[in-house]
Design a protein around this nucleic acid. Structure first.
Lengths: 121, 121
DNA sequence: ATTATGCGAAACCATTTGGTTTCATATCGC
DNA sequence: GCGATATGAAACCAAATGGTTTCGCATAAT
């Protein structure tokens, strides 16, 4: 189903704060362009262009309803982000574990996997 | 003194594929700039500029060691991303169980997606 | 002391980005 | 049919972005 290579990926798409707001707005509603654009301090055309970026990233989908185009969230591509992020969980997990050991002051922690990284906590 | 307001946030910082590669590279090693830059198809100065963006976003920290500057990952700001993403979990939870299972089974690395312009290593 | 190395700042450049205004087209209401 | 409304495409523009080369300055090595 991977169709043509989109020129915007999810990382680029969410980099812009306006587009993140659009995602939030369309998360649970489906809205036509004009209704969307009145909420933003820019022209309808500018909003339309942001919607196109989101659409190319697969984060939003529009369907035509009469003369209006109604957009809604399409959350699937966020899984790519989630997966990317998952890789780094272990790196802050170490730090949080160190913090937790400190807070708990219990005797359970078996081995200290302390790296030389210079404790920030 | 409170540091100046960073002009790059985590969303912008990770939008660039080179910078995502930098994060991955620096995740478990601490490396000086030249050692980093030889792995990228661009000048040392360009890499240095990417490191500065990451540094402003708090994703990387450099410490001077002699005449070299050694950078390493600073994962905390990724928590902001995680929090942002968490908001949308409920939207894919309903309809995307199958896809999520698919993702989770291959969840062992974050290295799947980086299509760096022109050069693989 | 002199040379070599590691790094970032500066100046510069091309392309992309985020916005605008204008225009063409499709559809709705009358 | 005709005017009003909804939308996207196009042309345009300023600023940001991602890269380059050049340069100056610390620090290391000889």
């Amino acid at each position: 189903m991977r169709a043509a290579k989109p020129q915007y990926d999810v990382f680029q798409a969410i980099a812009d704060p306006t587009r993140r707001e659009l995602l939030k707005l369309l998360a649970d509603r489906e809205l036509p362009v004009t209704a969307i654009s009145v909420r933003f301090p820019m022209s309808r055309t500018a909003v339309s262009k942001h919607l196109r970026v989101l659409s190319e990233a697969g984060l939003v989908k529009g369907r035509k309803s009469g003369r209006e185009m109604r957009y809604r969230l399409e959350p699937e591509p966020l899984l790519e982000l989630k997966r990317w992020l998952a890789y780094y969980e272990r790196f802050w997990a170490n730090k949080l574990a160190a913090l937790q050991r400190y807070v708990e002051t219990k005797d359970d922690a078996a081995g200290g996997e302390e790296e030389q990284s210079g404790a920030n906590f």
